[in-house]
Design a protein around this nucleic acid. Structure first.
Length: 349
DNA sequence: CTCCAGTACG
DNA sequence: CGTACCGGAG
């Protein structure tokens, strides 16, 4: 069954109407002096003795986030007017984007899409929990899910749930080895177990055992990058702060020419750039569904290595169709003989 | 042996 | 920017 999240469909958590302020690069600009960094961190809660130096961790993380692209002062058009207009287009949408989306939806519903689960991992795990624990569960399953198979994540979350290890409190108290054994074999489980402990401690000391409620603060959590932060804001707080862009969304957006529109012929080289570019024209109703949609599409048809353009119903609308590109990064150089492509890459090293 | 639905660290 | 982290599946 297709669980397509709608931004405002869920009724339990009232979506914050004022949310829609496009976050511009605040803080992370690096290079700024220590004084500036201070002012980004409003309140300074008392730190219980005995806990790791959380502030330090947070600072470290924050200071290294997005490297900053260009100054991009939002070109003036955008005003952070809370609640007035939910979406202000600052770039012209690419031609036929609606047809393209519709086409992809069709393909996704006919081909069986393995990805349905995706958001589910998080959502389902917490469905029977109280809101606060549910949010924490969403955060944890998001963390576990990166570069892991969905069913593996699902199993791990179930084991954590059975062991009562899905709250900040219990995780903070639990032995790290125990956590490892529960979440195995998710990718990077050792590291993630460590992240979970640190996150739990931060949540306890700064957020009363809850998860941070702002994008900025979620991003400060160790092991949580942009991709997951937007996911968590959406699923845990029902607060759509931005588009959740992973490598599939990144790659496909580039193939479709969706991020080189609107006068400027910019290309995006990172998922973060793609997110910003997409947000400039994609209507907000699509911000959430775009991810599951493109991820499914990206796994079955528009694959990174050898896209199945022959099976793709919108290839006539795709500038990259049948071009045999490998990845957005490696130059689309005229592809080599297909079968030996892999070997060739190897030899190239 | 390669490829992942990322993120931290040098 | 490059690289390590981890395991399982093609």
């Amino acid at each position: 069954m297709t669980t397509r999240l709608r931004p405002s469909s869920s009724s339990n958590n009232p979506p914050d109407p004022s949310v829609y302020v496009r976050n511009k690069r605040v803080k992370k600009n690096v290079e700024i002096s220590a004084g500036d960094a201070e002012e980004l961190k409003p309140q300074q809660p008392i730190k219980p003795s005995g806990l790791p130096d959380i502030e330090d961790l947070a600072n470290k993380k924050a200071s290294k986030l997005p490297k900053l692209r260009k100054s991009k002062s939002t070109s003036g058009t955008h005003v952070p007017d809370a609640g007035v207009s939910p979406f202000i287009r600052t770039a012209k949408p690419p031609a036929n984007w609606e047809k393209v989306l519709e086409g992809i939806r069709q393909m996704r519903s006919s081909e069986n899409a393995p990805v349905e689960v995706e958001f589910m991992g998080a959502g389902e795990a917490g469905s029977s929990l109280p809101p606060k624990e549910k949010r924490f569960a969403v955060l944890v399953s998001g963390l576990l899910s990166s570069l892991s198979k969905d069913y593996v994540v699902h199993g791990a979350v179930q084991r954590l749930l059975e062991s009562d290890l899905l709250t900040a409190d219990s995780i903070a108290k639990a032995d790290e080895e125990t956590i490892k054994s529960k979440i195995y074999p998710v990718a990077f489980y050792k590291r993630k177990a460590s992240f979970m402990k640190r996150i739990a401690n931060i949540c306890l000391s700064k957020y009363d055992g809850d998860i941070p409620s702002t994008l900025e603060d979620v991003l400060k959590l160790p092991g949580v990058g942009p991709k997951m932060a937007y996911l968590v804001m959406t699923l845990a707080w029902n607060n759509v702060q931005g588009i959740c862009v992973d490598t599939h969304v990144h790659r496909i957006s580039n193939r479709l020419g969706w991020v080189s529109c609107g006068g400027t012929n910019q290309k995006t080289n990172t998922p973060e750039e793609t997110r910003e570019a997409l947000e400039r024209w994609l209507p907000k109703e699509e911000w959430v569904p775009i991810n599951p949609l493109l991820v499914g599409f990206g796994q079955t048809i528009c694959t990174p290595l050898r896209p199945q353009c022959g099976k793709c119903s919108i290839s006539d609308l795709c500038p990259s169709a049948f071009k045999e590109v490998s990845t957005p990064k490696s130059a689309p150089k005229k592809s080599a003989p297909k079968k030996s492509k892999k070997r060739e890459n190897l030899a190239f090293k």
